[in-house]
C-alpha cells in the first residue's frame, strides 16, 4: 500500500497514462457515436470526481459544525476548490463532446447540463462568500453552512439524466448494468480510478501547502 505523497503521485501519473492508452488505443470504437465516444472515458470520471469532491467538502463542513474543530474548515475549502476545478473540466470536456456528437457546444434543453452548470456556479459563489468575510470562526461556520446547502444539488444533478424527458444526454449506466462491452467498461474503471487518485493527490498537495502557509504565518508572528 503506497502512503507517501510522491509514491501516490507517481502511481496516479502511471494510472492516468494507462487510462489514456486504453481509452485512445485499446477500447473498441462505438458503433453509434464513433471516435467521439472516447471523450466518455475522461469526461464521466471527471464529472464523478467533481461530485465526490463537492460531497467530501460538505462532509468536512458537517464535521466542522458538529465537532467544532477548525482544521475541517481548510479541508472542506480544499475539497470544494478541487470540485470546482474538476467541475470546470466537466463542463469543458462535455462541451467538446457535445460539439462532436450533437454539433453544438452547448444546449439549454438538457436538464443534466443546466443542473451541472447551476451546481458549478453555486460552488463558485462559495468562494465569493468565503473571501468576503474576515478569517475566523464566523467565516468557517458560514462557509460550512453554504457547503452543506450545495450538497442537495448533487443527487438532483446526478439523477437529472434519469428524470430528463429530452433524452439528449446519453444514459450509459441503467438498472440492467453498464450499456457497453467488457473492454469499454474496464477502460472506464481504470480511467475513473486514475482521475480519482489524481484528485486525491492534488487534494493532499494543496492541503499540505495551505497548512504550511498557515504555520509559516504563525511562526512569523511569533518571531517578529
Amino acid at each position: 500500500m503506497i502512503r507517501s505523497l510522491p509514491g501516490l503521485a507517481a502511481f496516479a501519473a502511471g494510472l492516468m497514462g494507462l487510462g489514456i492508452f486504453l481509452a485512445l488505443i485499446v477500447a473498441p470504437e462505438d458503433a453509434d457515436q464513433g471516435i467521439s465516444q472516447r471523450v466518455f472515458y475522461i469526461h464521466v470520471p471527471i464529472a464523478l470526481t467533481a461530485y465526490f469532491c463537492f460531497g467530501l467538502g460538505a462532509w468536512k463542513a458537517l464535521l466542522l459544525l458538529w465537532r467544532g474543530d477548525e482544521r475541517y474548515d481548510l479541508e472542506s475549502y480544499v475539497a470544494i476548490h478541487q470540485g470546482t476545478i474538476f467541475g470546470a473540466l466537466t463542463l469543458i470536456t462535455g462541451s467538446i463532446w457535445a460539439r462532436a456528437s450533437w454539433d453544438v457546444w452547448w444546449t439549454w434543453g438538457s436538464n443534466q447540463l443546466v443542473l451541472f452548470l447551476v451546481l458549478f456556479l453555486f460552488y463558485c459563489a462559495y468562494f465569493m462568500l468565503r473571501f468576503s468575510l474576515e478569517e475566523g470562526p464566523r467565516r468557517a461556520r458560514s462557509s460550512a453552512v453554504y457547503a452543506l446547502f450545495g450538497v442537495v444539488l448533487i443527487p438532483v444533478s446526478f439523477l437529472a439524466i434519469r428524470l430528463a424527458e429530452d433524452f439528449i444526454h446519453p444514459t450509459v449506466f441503467t438498472r440492467e448494468g453498464p450499456q457497453m462491452t467488457g473492454t469499454m467498461f474496464a477502460t472506464f474503471c481504470v480511467s475513473w480510478a486514475a482521475v480519482t487518485l489524481l484528485a486525491y493527490v492534488l487534494y493532499r498537495v494543496e492541503l499540505a501547502g495551505k497548512r504550511l502557509d498557515a504555520d509559516l504565518r504563525e511562526l512569523r508572528e511569533v518571531l517578529q
Binding site: I20, L24, G34, I35, S36, R38, V39, I42, H43, I46, I85, A88, L89, I92, T93, I96, W97, R99, A100, L198, L202
Partner: peptide, 22 residues
C-alpha cells in the same frame, strides 16, 4: 470545422493543460 478526432484530442489536451497549470 473540427473533425471528431481533433475534438477528442482537444478534450484530453484540455485536461492535460489544466493539470499542468495546477
Amino acid at each position: 470545422n473540427w473533425s471528431q478526432a481533433e475534438l477528442v484530442a482537444a478534450a484530453y489536451g484540455v485536461v492535460f493543460v489544466f493539470v499542468l497549470v495546477y
